[in-house]
Simulated assay, not measured.
Amino acid sequence: MNRQKVQEYKTLYLLAKALEQTDDMVFITDTNGIIEYVNDSVSIKTGYEREELVGKKTNILKSGKHTQEFYKKLWATILSGQNYHNVIIDKTKDGRLYYADLKITPLFDDNQTIQNFVATSTDITNRIEMEKKLEKMATIDSLTGIYNRYKIDDEINLQIARCERYKEVFSIIMFDIDFFKVVNDTYGHDAGDRVLKVLSQLISKHIRVTDIFGRWGGEEFVIILSKTGEDEAFIIAEKLRKIVENYTIDGKYNITISSGVTQYIAPQSREELIKKVDEGLYLAKEKGRNQVVVV
Results as ranks from 00 to 15, higher is better:
residue 156 I to R: 00
residue 156 I to N: 01
residue 157 N to A: 14
residue 157 N to C: 13
residue 157 N to V: 14
residue 158 L to F: 10
residue 160 I to A: 07
residue 161 A to L: 11
residue 161 A to V: 10
residue 162 R to N: 14
residue 163 C to N: 14
residue 163 C to V: 01
residue 163 C to F: 06
residue 164 E to M: 13
residue 166 Y to Q: 04
residue 167 K to A: 13
residue 168 E to T: 15
residue 168 E to K: 15
residue 169 V to W: 07
residue 170 F to E: 01
residue 172 I to R: 05
residue 173 I to T: 03
residue 174 M to I: 11
residue 175 F to E: 00
residue 176 D to V: 03
residue 176 D to F: 01
residue 177 I to P: 00
residue 177 I to F: 03
residue 179 F to Q: 08
residue 180 F to Y: 09
residue 182 V to W: 05
residue 182 V to R: 13
residue 183 V to I: 15
residue 183 V to T: 11
residue 184 N to K: 01
residue 185 D to A: 05
residue 186 T to A: 02
residue 186 T to L: 06
residue 187 Y to H: 11
residue 189 H to M: 04
residue 189 H to W: 09
residue 192 G to F: 00
residue 192 G to H: 03
residue 193 D to E: 04
residue 194 R to E: 13
residue 195 V to I: 14
residue 197 K to P: 00
residue 198 V to I: 15
residue 199 L to A: 03
residue 201 Q to Y: 10
residue 201 Q to C: 08
residue 205 K to I: 07
residue 205 K to R: 14
residue 205 K to P: 00
residue 206 H to T: 08
residue 207 I to A: 04
residue 207 I to T: 04
residue 208 R to Q: 13
residue 208 R to D: 10
residue 209 V to E: 15
residue 213 F to C: 03
residue 214 G to E: 01
residue 214 G to A: 10
residue 215 R to C: 07
residue 217 G to A: 09
residue 218 G to H: 03
residue 218 G to M: 07
residue 219 E to V: 09
residue 220 E to S: 09
residue 220 E to C: 06
residue 221 F to R: 09
residue 221 F to D: 02
residue 222 V to W: 02
residue 223 I to M: 09
residue 225 L to C: 10
residue 226 S to D: 07
residue 226 S to Q: 12
residue 226 S to C: 10
residue 226 S to A: 13
residue 226 S to M: 06
residue 227 K to E: 15
residue 227 K to S: 15
residue 228 T to K: 09
residue 228 T to C: 14
residue 228 T to F: 04
residue 228 T to I: 09
residue 229 G to A: 11
residue 231 D to A: 13
residue 232 E to Y: 10
residue 232 E to H: 12
residue 235 I to D: 14
residue 236 I to G: 09
residue 237 A to Y: 03
residue 237 A to F: 06
residue 238 E to Y: 11
residue 239 K to I: 05
residue 239 K to Y: 10
residue 239 K to L: 04
residue 239 K to A: 04
residue 240 L to T: 07
residue 240 L to G: 08
residue 240 L to M: 09
residue 241 R to D: 02
residue 243 I to F: 03
residue 245 E to T: 06
residue 248 T to N: 15
residue 249 I to T: 06
residue 250 D to L: 05
residue 250 D to E: 13
residue 251 G to L: 02
residue 251 G to N: 11
residue 251 G to R: 11
residue 251 G to A: 03
residue 253 Y to H: 14
residue 254 N to M: 07
residue 256 T to I: 09
residue 257 I to G: 03
residue 258 S to R: 04
residue 259 S to W: 03
residue 259 S to Y: 07
residue 259 S to C: 15
residue 261 V to P: 01
residue 265 I to D: 12
residue 265 I to V: 13
residue 266 A to S: 15
residue 266 A to Q: 15
residue 266 A to T: 14
residue 267 P to L: 10
residue 267 P to H: 13
residue 267 P to V: 10
residue 268 Q to I: 05
residue 268 Q to T: 08
residue 269 S to N: 10
residue 270 R to C: 11
residue 271 E to P: 02
residue 271 E to G: 08
residue 273 L to I: 02
residue 273 L to W: 06
residue 274 I to S: 05
residue 275 K to Y: 09
residue 275 K to I: 08
residue 276 K to E: 12
residue 276 K to F: 08
